[in-house]
Write a protein that binds this DNA or RNA. Structure first.
Lengths: 227, 227
DNA sequence: CAAAGGTGTGAAGAAGCCGTGAAAATGCTG
DNA sequence: CAGCATTTTCACGGCTTCTTCACACCTTTG
């Protein structure tokens, strides 16, 4: 937050911190730019009418090397100023006085836009790599592995719960649907198929583990230290 | 633009057309959603207070399957309405009466934000070159290739997700719209057409790969070193 | 030590999916 | 309105995938 009015700064800091945003403040353009450079914020809130620099200057200074959303606060209704700020690279422009709820909503909108929903869905083991997003598996030995839809779904459920035990019941429910809670042989058949394709030694599984009487577990102890 | 006031509609249309935006209008929520589904606009402007639907409903309806920026116009200063619209997925909220210059500036900001990731609008393979921006394909053998609109859209979705598997569902959704989630034969027909035009050996595809039961994948393993 | 339940195989028929060519319907242009 | 390009629909053979089953193996339990 780059703002020279202590009152607004304090009000915002309190409200934002209460919603578990992390807030850093600067009170003029120069130190604002420095802070942005240092802290790499996810969003920047800039008050126009800073003591040392023109608002559009500050915005351009940030845009020169960051694509973080910039929200401008200003007392000035003046349309020319708004247009200048927006064209300099600002993402939103709020006129004072403003409601805190509106600011927060605009903040959420800005963050939402900037976050392209990337949850790193790639699991790497010593023997193969699973890319959940691309729906793709390759082994270090043979390269690309082809999985059938059911095989893939089963693997996906297990990998999404990696480390945890997944009940037979739940696996059947998630892969075959609510009507198949009893057909436990499906699991045996398909787990065997996956082991044949993924495990270095299918008869002694290292990743797709059986928990007798309960279900299965995908384990990826990066092994690291032998023994 | 979804707006039921003819005066505003006309004013906007004139101003936007003059700046060489292409404008489509709808005068109520239902036809607005239909128009968005059909036209695939780059930005949507929605007036709240439509005759048939709640504003937030319209926004959610669009957000359900499009990520195009949505700018809301409204006569209501009411903060609750603003927050509701923004949290429903709107990107900006402008209170009437507004200055045309401000609207245009916010429009530019919205479009600018929405078009960042053009990280490689030209895809080159060993056999052909796809220019996403210019919407053109040329093969090394025959030169320029003509694609029909549907063929192009399908190819575009696949290429934008190159390397990733794209579900049949998603392809139908993105190319034909939200109502066609089941017509999987369309895909077979059009993929075959694309293969006939692009693949060196259409019966043994190298780029447009089938993942039986799941979907299709555009692959461009520059072939590179064998083994 | 024998019985019982749960698990890992391999194989075979059934079911469903894909590629294909072509015809009917639709929309567009002049 | 005719002529053309495009989209939608359909039915077939060939192939992949799913389901089902029988049997061997293991571990636990009385």
């Amino acid at each position: 937050m780059i703002d020279d009015e202590p009152a607004i700064c304090r009000a915002l800091r309190i409200n934002l911190t209460a919603r578990s945003y992390e807030v850093k403040t600067a009170s003029d353009g120069a130190s604002g730019l420095a802070t942005v450079a240092r802290e790499r914020p996810d969003v920047v809130i800039v008050d126009l009418g800073l003591p040392d620099m023109d608002g559009a200057e500050v915005i351009r200074g940030i845009r020169g090397w960051s694509t973080a959303p910039i929200i401008v606060l200003s007392a000035r209704e003046n349309e020319v100023t708004k247009v200048a700020a927006l064209d300099a690279g600002a993402d939103d422009y709020i006129t004072k006085p403003f409601g805190m709820d509106e600011l927060l909503a605009r903040l959420r909108a800005a963050v939402r836009r900037a976050t392209p929903a990337e949850d790193a869905p790639v699991v790497v083991t010593d023997d193969f790599t699973i890319d959940l997003a691309a729906k793709r598996v390759r082994t270090n030995a043979d390269g690309e592995i082809k999985l059938t839809p059911t095989q893939w779904q089963l693997l996906e459920v297990l990998v999404r719960n990696r480390g945890k035990l997944v009940t037979q019941r739940q696996l059947l429910h998630d892969v075959w649907g609510p009507a198949y809670s009893t057909e436990a042989n499906y699991l045996r058949v398909y787990v065997a198929q996956l082991r044949r394709k993924l495990e270095p030694d299918p008869s002694r599984p290292r990743y797709l583990l059986t928990e007798t009487g309960m279900g299965y577990r995908f384990e990826n102890e990066s092994v690291a230290a032998g023994s």
